[in-house]
Design a protein around this nucleic acid. Structure first.
Ligand SMILES: [Zn+2]
Ligand SMILES: [Zn+2]
Ligand SMILES: [Zn+2]
Ligand SMILES: [Zn+2]
Lengths: 133, 133
DNA sequence: AAATGCAATGTTATAACGTAACAAGTACTG
DNA sequence: CAGTACTTGTTACGTTATAACATTGCATTT
């Protein structure tokens, strides 16, 4: 996985970092075609899998899209707040929340492994700036 | 003429209630074909939209699947714990967690509207009974 | 170096999920 | 009945994701 794969991954990560909103796998595919003419879907999905596995990017389950990690990279789950107006996504890290959720689950015998926490709403900019109050 | 839509919705709900795991829209479509030969995808999606809107069922964003509400029906968001082993899903209601999540989001100016909380892991039965050691 | 074997990558095809757009039916109104 | 508004059916397509297999690159052995 040394040569080509890493280059694709770097490019995917770069595109996601430059985007103000999450991008779908096929959005990324379009971008890649600028520099790599014949990339196909599985190539992008492989890069996305590697990057998510490493924590460099996060998948938005409720959007079927991907975003760069805003903390750079981290091993834990985070809380994503998705603006339904402008599409921007904020990332929060809160061990406390994960702790509480894990506790809740464990109370019913469940052993948590991964937390998906996505909050839909309207971001501060859209609330204050343009949206109706 | 009773509305056809309501009948489909009742059947979808019944199938979901009898299932021990979430079902995809196309799984449901298969079931419906037993009694309604020519149902098409949009019909199922309309029924699912009506049922989710009413809170009778929940969509699992990280699974692209649907489950019956285990509380019968409610207006608030719930916490779903998904067993990666047997596929069963547990539902917890915790206003406190929603409160905390909303607080977190609001601290950065975000106005929450809907919470997606899905915990992946292994359920008590699979942990204790047969699954892992 | 040539042969071997394995893992990464490329390629094709198709599966799975979801919706737009319009046609047809139904129920009410005047 | 004709007109209207709404619901349901149907077709077709768009989007998201993966299975399966071919090919390439590179290290290890001989
Ligand atoms: Zn992150
Ligand atoms: Zn916004
Ligand atoms: Zn419920
Ligand atoms: Zn289980």
């Amino acid at each position: 996985m040394t040569k080509r794969g890493e280059e694709i991954q770097r490019q995917v990560l770069a595109v996601l970092r430059q985007s103000s909103t999450p991008l779908s796998a096929y959005d990324l595919l379009d971008h890649l075609w600028d520099s790599h003419p014949k990339i196909a879907a599985p190539t992008v999905y492989r890069a996305l899998a590697a990057l998510t596995g490493r924590g460099s990017i996060h998948r938005l389950e409720s959007l079927n899209a991907y975003m760069a990690c805003q903390c750079g990279s981290h091993p834990h789950d985070s809380i994503l707040s998705i603006c339904g107006d402008c599409g921007s996504v904020g990332e929060q890290v809160s061990p406390d929340v994960l702790e509480i959720l894990s506790g809740l689950a464990q109370a019913s015998g469940f052993t948590p492994d991964r937390h998906v926490i996505e909050v839909h709403g309207v971001c501060g900019i859209c609330t204050g700036g343009a949206g109706a109050a």
